Simulated scan of single mutants.
Amino acid sequence: MQVAKLFAPAAVALAFSVPAIAQQMGAPSVDDQVNQLDEMVDLDEGQKEEISTILTQTQREISANEQEAQQLQQQLGEHVQPDYDEAAIRADAERLGELTAEITADSILMQAKIEDIFTPEQREQLEEAMAQRQEQMQQMQEQMQQQGG
């Protein structure tokens, strides 16, 4: 059960950390994410609404930071030239690090806020579902290795 407790937060964070860029690439919408979670832990209407609000707000914040991070990555690539400016490279790299930290913090805070909405029974259901998914993923990996090797 301890492994499930350690894995569940990471899985929830990954499952619900969907910025606007990923959404354009066909990632699930907020409604789809809430529905998926509802199927796993049977949310009530108030929980669905709270989670939807948290997801929407966090995705907006993450999306803005990701856009700036992409611009900085492009700028850093443009610095690769014979007459480089070390101070500019370091400043851009430092800002990129700050943005990465913000994105990570926002994702973890979102997950914690969602976890706070669940009942103890729902948390247990989620842990069990995440453990099952982990086991399925591991079995698939083993099958792929056996087929490939």
Rank of each mutant, 00 (worst) to 15 (best):
I103V: 08
E121W: 00
Q2G: 14
K5L: 14
I54S: 00
E142C: 04
A131E: 04
E127M: 01
G77D: 00
R60F: 14
Q125K: 08
E142L: 06
A10Y: 11
A10Q: 13
Q81G: 13
R123Y: 05
A22V: 07
A129Y: 07
P28V: 09
A93H: 06
A27Q: 00
V18I: 14
A10E: 13
A101F: 10
Q67Y: 11
T104N: 15
Q33P: 02
Q138D: 12
P120W: 03
E121V: 09
I117D: 01
Q59W: 11
V18W: 00
E39S: 11
G26I: 01
E115R: 11
M140C: 03
P28N: 12
K5A: 13
M25Q: 14
E61H: 12
Q125F: 03
I62V: 14
Q139P: 10
Q73A: 14
I21S: 13
D116I: 00
T104E: 15
Q81M: 11
A91E: 09
D44I: 03
E78K: 08
L14N: 12
E102F: 10
R95G: 07
A20H: 10
A93D: 02
V30A: 01
Q70C: 08
G97N: 06
Q143R: 10
A8T: 09
A101S: 14
A129S: 14
A112L: 14
N35T: 02
Y84F: 14
I103H: 03
T53L: 12
P19R: 13
I51E: 02
S63E: 04
L14T: 12
Q132L: 07
Q23I: 09
L43D: 04
T119L: 02
L76K: 07
T56A: 09
L99N: 00
Q67K: 15
N35G: 10
D38T: 05
I62C: 02
S63Y: 05
L43R: 01
D116S: 11
L37D: 01
Q138Y: 08
G149W: 00
D116M: 06
A8S: 13
Q73Y: 11
A4Q: 07
F118W: 01
I108A: 12
F118C: 03
A131R: 04
S63H: 05
Q23F: 08
M40F: 07
G46A: 10
D32S: 08
Q145S: 01
D83I: 11
L43H: 05
A88P: 02
E135G: 03
